[in-house]
Design a protein around this nucleic acid. Sequence first.
DNA 1: TACCAAAATTTTGAATTTAAATTGGGGATA
DNA 2: TATCCCCAATTTAAATTCAAAATTTTGGTA
Lengths: 232, 232
Amino acid sequence: MMPKKIGFDEGRIVPLTLSGQVVERLRNWILLGELAPGEVLVERVLSEKLGVSRTPMREALRLLGSEGLIDMVPNRRPRVADPTLSEILELLEVHSLLEARGTRLAAQNISQNQLGELERLIDEMENSGAIRGQFEFFELDMNFHRKIVEASCNATLIEVHSQLNARLYRTRFLSTQTISNRPLMHSQHLKILESLQMKDGNSAQSHLEEHLLQLGKNITAIFKNDTQKKEE
Amino acid sequence: MMPKKIGFDEGRIVPLTLSGQVVERLRNWILLGELAPGEVLVERVLSEKLGVSRTPMREALRLLGSEGLIDMVPNRRPRVADPTLSEILELLEVHSLLEARGTRLAAQNISQNQLGELERLIDEMENSGAIRGQFEFFELDMNFHRKIVEASCNATLIEVHSQLNARLYRTRFLSTQTISNRPLMHSQHLKILESLQMKDGNSAQSHLEEHLLQLGKNITAIFKNDTQKKEE
DNA sequence: TACCAAAATTTTGAATTTAAATTGGGGATA
DNA sequence: TATCCCCAATTTAAATTCAAAATTTTGGTA
């Protein structure tokens, strides 16, 4: 009855469940803004749009609720999360704390291979400047930070950092979209990479903290600008 | 408060959904060890035991899975999480990081009322020593740490700390059960409280870090002792 | 016209049913 | 005797159905 051909049946390693696939679709839609912050989500409408029944859709919505991407209140329609500035700054504080520690741990554990990947990402970011779009640059930047944390070899740290990152995704995207102080970012990235190459955890951590402090300022500026526009 | 959240009635009493109640029951059972680590959970059996249908039970199991208290693999029976020592130490590292920051923030934000509660908890811990059971002491200790983090006024920090705490709950329980170096704990608690009273965030943080370092040692000892017994 | 109350509709919560996957055992075969 | 394959029993995944709660609309009234 259902043409459930969304995934491949060769998921021998991890058989991705239907609700799991729905989670990924919805998460992408939210991260990319195709489901806007504050938007109400109706179970039946969404499940029909994706061609699944309400059961896996409900499970997907609940999972995204536990991740903080969706606000779930019993007996009410779910809404895409729409955090206030202060909530975002709270998120960013914890996120930065984890990323800083992850960076310090990475200095101990990172492999030559991983260092090479980071170098490549920095190069691509510099080259993407004129040629490609802002979104490409943004994704490269996100990958850069993600790979550093992954080099920490602490699964819990990686997991929680990733979740908080998802909740900050849209805001960070807006940040790189509008304020493109790329030379500064580039030099900061290089400093972090150099510290990692020298296995100097403290140095890497402090350079990263400086980098993220900058991000906080950008986000605050963006947010205030954004709410101003809304009120007009 | 931001005016963008119109339509959300914030002070509303949220009706606890059935699956929500199941989550609380199951979480308690896991934390208290009534559902032992590694135990397999059968949906139908559990839902019959609680007198609910399988739908809310499934949602509850998935939520606890996302919290890391249950290992969920598609098409397989869920199992109560049974982390290895290295996984526990990874959890503890992140948990300690958050609690340390929470303590520093608490020094800025804590109220006289909250300080009084902390003092009361320390007193109760000291008095409970001879009279009451180990479990009472353990819960007082957990409350002490929880209340400090809650005084940080960072909702994200509080939330993530609480989740990691749940995953460490059983281990921490075992830690206080077997190794009861209460005089040392008492003096460390007092130092933390004094630092908070003086609004000295750095001091509070370092005292707490020392306290948690001790916890790490205890847990390692316990765990190795425990696995030895299993092999006999 | 603005506002309040009650019916009608919509939407979610939970139970039941159906489908698909896994697990474990028995038997055929090398 | 050991190994592999197939089938039945068990268990979860997903769809459907039913009930309860919330939201919207409608109609009346000041």
